[in-house]
């Protein structure tokens, strides 16, 4: 029985049911609901997700595509030759695969309301992100062990699995965020 339970948990995890914004406080966005009964990923989907994590995660945290809408990812993929100051170009096949992956997993919500029509390429410039992090003192973010808001996993201990609950936060050299 334990085995079956373990297996189904594994299946759920593999299904990539990301719990974005599943905060402890009640929250307006409930994207995770649509993946609550997500189908397990096919081998094809698994290899695509692995390619994304390998390629984009080589230099920085592999942000879940659900954090930005398709228009943002399209803009990012069009400008990889000058990606936040570095050349992040990919071979044409991988570029296409990753672009499609981002497009199909992008947020269905417009996360840029209030940005005056600008297309965000940083998750940290979206109003929702700013709201969620408004109380964090700057020094906690700019310290050497974090560097910037781009480094989700420095504080969100389960960020890699797509979980950003407040009780999982451990800020380096400061501890929990209560």
């Amino acid at each position: 029985m334990t085995k079956i339970v373990n297996l189904s948990i594994a299946a759920l995890l593999l299904a990539g049911g990301v719990y974005l914004y599943a905060d402890d406080d009640e929250h307006e966005e409930h994207e995770h609901k649509r993946s609550a009964v997500a189908k397990p990923m096919t081998p094809q989907e698994k290899s695509t997700a692995a390619l994304y994590t390998k390629e984009c995660g080589a230099c920085h945290f592999a942000y879940q595509p659900e954090f930005l809408p398709k228009s943002s990812w399209d803009k990012t993929m069009k400008t990889l030759d000058s990606h936040f100051g570095t050349d992040a170009t990919l071979d044409p096949q991988d570029h296409k695969t990753i672009q499609n992956y981002l497009a199909s997993h992008a947020s269905r919500y417009d996360r840029m309301t209030g940005m005056g029509g600008a297309i965000a390429i940083r998750i940290s410039e979206t109003p929702n992100f700013k709201h969620e992090h408004r109380e964090i003192p700057k020094k906690m973010v700019t310290q050497a062990d974090v560097k910037s808001f781009a480094n989700c996993a420095a504080c969100h201990t389960k960020a890699a699995s797509g979980s950003y609950r407040e009780r999982e936060v451990r800020i380096p050299n400061y501890g929990s965020w209560e």
Binding site: A58, C59, H60, F61, F84, T86, A144, K147, A150, N151
Partner: peptide, 8 residues
């Protein structure tokens, strides 16, 4: 090593 921009 360490990525000088991201710290990775």
């Amino acid at each position: 090593g360490k990525n000088s921009l991201t710290g990775k």
